[in-house]
């Protein structure tokens, strides 16, 4: 079977990700170099971006390094940030069944939002090997992300610039994700739950200690009020559902 059209199509499909990952990664890399205070930003940029391949996490890391956040909290927050990944595999379990373990592990390891979307879309040329397509996509996207973060870290180290306020990039990233999630009506209900729980915890515990109590309060509310919240999903202010 001819591999070339598959490789070519994988590259073409990955081009929008090239744009997105290199620029977003660059921003995260600059932030790591200018705000975390680590000694070899490019090295840590490489190690962290190569192993977790996660956008929001890459920004959060800087905050954790500054505060020397305890590991239990790091683990819990990572779950919160990346819980969505645990849903992605559900639609790929069938396709990845019976693969050699190394290929399967890599495909799972590299499953980001964008890679998942492209793998599900699966624009493999007729008669082409779908697994080869997925592996190529995954490896390309993985490289783009590492290149973005590392070059950002190098730029941030080499060119000192007035960086006061650059930490707003993380706030902006969360605002963007929240805005997109709230386009879907059902998500607004759950965003409101998170908002309420965390405002209460911020007032009670203060900014430095609010995260763990917020997660506990939020999860309890989501489990205990699961049924009523589901009813609220289709509710619209002043209108019929």
């Amino acid at each position: 079977m001819n591999r070339k059209p598959v490789l070519k199509q994988a590259f073409v499909s990955s081009l929008p990700v090239l744009m997105g990952y290199t620029t977003m990664g660059f921003a995260a890399g600059v932030l790591l170099a200018t705000n975390s205070g680590v000694e070899h930003p490019a090295l840590w940029a490489f190690l962290t971006s190569a192993t977790s391949i996660s956008g929001a996490l890459q920004f959060m890391l800087v905050d954790w390094i500054q505060k020397a956040q305890p590991m239990l909290e790091v683990a819990l927050l990572t779950v919160c940030l990346n819980i969505r990944y645990s849903m992605y595999g559900l639609s790929l379990v069938e396709r990845f069944r019976g693969l050699p373990i190394a290929k399967k592990l890599y495909l799972i390891w590299s499953l980001t939002d964008e890679t998942y979307a492209l793998e599900v879309e699966n624009k493999v040329p007729p008669g082409g090997d779908s697994i080869l397509y997925c592996l190529t996509l995954a490896a390309l996207n993985h490289c783009y992300w590492i290149i973005g973060v590392v070059s950002g870290a190098l730029a941030g180290t080499a060119l000192p610039f007035p960086n006061k306020g650059i930490d707003f990039a993380m706030t902006a990233l969360f605002l963007v994700i929240l805005t997109d999630q709230c386009r879907e009506c059902r998500n607004r209900v759950y965003a409101a739950v998170g908002l309420l729980a965390s405002v209460v915890c911020a007032l009670v515990f203060g900014a430095g200690r609010m995260l763990i109590p917020s997660i506990i309060l939020m999860l309890s509310a989501l489990i205990v009020f699961r049924k009523p919240l589901e009813k609220l999903e289709s509710w619209r202010p002043g209108g019929r559902s």
Binding site: L178, V193, V199
Partner: peptide
Amino acid sequence: GKVLSPAAIAMLVVY
């Protein structure tokens, strides 16, 4: 799994 994500992102904005 579906509902934790918007709640967690809202929490991080508040944070």
